[in-house]
Amino acid sequence: MKIVVCVKQVPDISQAKVDPETYTIIRTGVDAVVNPFDLYAVEAALQIKDNLPQTKVTAISMGPPQAEAALKEVISMGVDDAILLSSKHFAGSDTLATSYVLSKAINQIKDVDLIITGRQAIDGDTAQVGPGIAAHLNLPLVTDVNGIVEIKPDELKIKAMTEEGYLYYFLPLPALISIGKGIGEPRMPSLRNKSRARKAIIPVWTPEEIDAEYQKIGLKGSPTQVVKIFTPEVGGEVLFIEGEPPQQAERMVEILGQRHII
């Protein structure tokens, strides 16, 4: 089987601190990491490879040249090879343009059986790029997959999470799935794969290599535009409920009642 996993490099929010005055998240000086959901996507691909050893897993990422680090990280987990999509023409792409670029790259890789993305990126939080790629490529789509139950070369049995519970599907390939946390913890890099990642030469593809139309990428290809960014109002100080537990509990219940919350 031939699998492409899409990964994104994002700021590491776990390093961020909350500003004690404005309660906003301080983002400066934060390292870049692989989007956590994309690590689950890589894990899903590698679970399939464990079952079907002939499987080849290629990771792709659209981003600045530094995003190479994210691709090396997933190679160290066991991904076979990687391609970086990087060009100033890609900058400013919204989800429509991004899904177009990734779909063009997947076309270029050719004969891909399965495309795997994370459920969403933790910086943008849109969950739109995976479904967008599926739409560009006219592929069947199942989102928020939290388990691969059966693996055959031309079909998967999968478990997807929704608000109502877990949905089970037979998914014929080729197809696209997005992956949630239930897939299982992403595996640790092995020594062998780490050394492979260090030596890996990651090709960089620009619009030329993927035959992308310039009108459809970057800012030009992005119908949405951000017109304003602002900090939301935040609540005031925390009120400490004093006393021994019985008094604390009664006081708390009383306040919630007065505020018509309960």
Binding site: D125, P131, T143, P223, T224
Partner: peptide
């Protein structure tokens, strides 16, 4: 902005080549 709504409109936005804002 639910497990039904998000992928549904994502697919549609690509078909109509238009903007979609999540959540």
């Amino acid at each position: 902005s639910t497990s039904q709504g998000r992928p549904l409109l994502s697919k549609l936005a690509v078909k109509f080549q238009t903007g979609l804002t999540a959540d």
